[in-house]
Design a protein around this nucleic acid. Sequence first.
DNA 1: CTGAAAGCGCTTACAG
DNA 2: CTGAAAGCGCTTACAG
Lengths: 345, 345
Amino acid sequence: MSVSETKAGAVKNLQDLADLAGVSRATASRALNDNPRISQATRDKIQALARDHGYAINRRARDFRLQRTGVIAVVFMLDIESKQHMSDLFFLDMLGGIADSLAERDYDLLLARAPVLDVRDLNNSRMLNQSDGAIFIGQGEQHEQLNNLARQRSSLVVWGEPVPGKQYVLVGSNNEVGGYQAATHLVAKGRRKIAFFGSTGNPENAARFAGYQRALAEHGLEFDPALKFDIPFDMEAAQSAIPELLQSSPDFDAVMCVTDVMAMATLSALQHRGTRVPEDIAVVGYDDISLAAYSSPPLTTVRQHIREAGAVLVDSVLGLINGNPVKDTLLDTELIVRRSSDTKS
Amino acid sequence: MSVSETKAGAVKNLQDLADLAGVSRATASRALNDNPRISQATRDKIQALARDHGYAINRRARDFRLQRTGVIAVVFMLDIESKQHMSDLFFLDMLGGIADSLAERDYDLLLARAPVLDVRDLNNSRMLNQSDGAIFIGQGEQHEQLNNLARQRSSLVVWGEPVPGKQYVLVGSNNEVGGYQAATHLVAKGRRKIAFFGSTGNPENAARFAGYQRALAEHGLEFDPALKFDIPFDMEAAQSAIPELLQSSPDFDAVMCVTDVMAMATLSALQHRGTRVPEDIAVVGYDDISLAAYSSPPLTTVRQHIREAGAVLVDSVLGLINGNPVKDTLLDTELIVRRSSDTKS
DNA sequence: CTGAAAGCGCTTACAG
DNA sequence: CTGAAAGCGCTTACAG
């Protein structure tokens, strides 16, 4: 028993802990890291001491010493022309999935500071220089810039659509099949004039559109270019564009939207002009964001397995960091039928 | 992430830059930080050199040396009983506001790893020990635990409702007034039987409820306890609870919901059973999340100025870190009238 | 106005 | 099995 057992000396760093245990800093460090070179007895004793005194290794110092940052940057690529927002709910759901996976692996998440207009600006930015790796969500219209980045930096993973000539590791879901599933479902429900809402300026949407066209062709329906509408991502713009379009456009009996958020804006606009959904016009979205089940009516949509996607993105970027070979991943999509396309749901 | 060394002498640290400029590391450091003790000429020269060679101060090392982390932790307090999710859109909007403000101030954002059940668990966690300050969103039912934390750690700000005896800096909006605005609006629209949807287990909702009661009283309406419904935050549970409640409950001609997300679930349930909104039942939400304008019908709601709130939270926590006196802030709420309560909107 | 030196809290090759 | 020492990239009191 020492003279005074008061917790006079708070254990604030490794040196304090080593002093307390009567060993060197080196030994204390190894013991805490369970290095087998240290005797089991010593390890136990030091670990117990750390626990009792509420000491935990200072991770920033550790990372600094190990020349890693412990940080993964997450960059949301926004479609410039269409003013897509970070508040797109799909992005936010995705962010949650990534955050959880990173936390499990003991990495921090650094959020992109601002909408990135040009990836080149990132090259010397703090964001990329001071993270161990980066996850880009969406390719936007910057495929080439991403390729350049990938050539210079090793640990970079992109969520999106595999485009020819890409030089980065890609994780995505099968957009062509997703588009095909949505359109095929509408055809099966007896719809014949199926509109397509959304810009196809980025690879993901272009693939969804290709799937839509394939579905029409396979079912003997002719694609009518007048039924393809370039709706902006931006909710505000979409909200004003959609009613206008509904007024002047040829008739259709179904709409396939390129995101759920756009589909919800469409529902609102349709119902406001007295159109019944799904009786008059069926509506299908894309993503299956968490709110899709709770719109009125609940939204039929193509589910992207977002949480799983987050986990795969994290696994992939950490694989690259650790120098492992990492392959592309394409996740399956899944049609979720709800009342917006099916009175019986 | 390391940049591949194409240039012969890549400037990767302060020493390299100093060598290039023919000065000491100390001078280079001071020059980059625009220290007036260094001659203007030297400062200009070194800063230009840094720019030309793509060198930026390694912020991790700098933070480490300065014994700060450059990180603010953001912790979302979830209402346990009612299984509130982080995906509540209000939280996500708030997160965006905080992220932007922190980025402007050159701080990183560390996201809470998991739903926090008991704040005490955080006390020795990495999250709090290795950040310069923390922002808690919502008090949940853990007011006391927050008080304990605040006594031990200085730089802590809470978003929520001012409750008596709190020992932490608080930022919030005026929930009592918000509730009052919502209910008063419904009364003004001629509604007489106004239901209240939501759990009042946390201080914010309790205040909204108090405002609702005050509005009824001031307008000579009697509060009917049968019209107060304890709806869970959890969307899934809410979705199943609401239809049930609609079936067995006394009649009402309006509903005030404690969040927009709940209001959207209510819209969906009401319309599914054939109730017209707002003709039969008017619905009012709370928060004005970005999707509120795009539901069908668009949602009347009490706006919390979320982006501004994020900025104030960040200013407050940075104020505490810098040792400045920081006062509580109560932001105003604003009634936003849309079609869910007003056919003429 | 500038520099040499110490040190933030760790880890690890090297030596014993 | 354990320790002394170097060093990650910076900043700053101290000295000149």
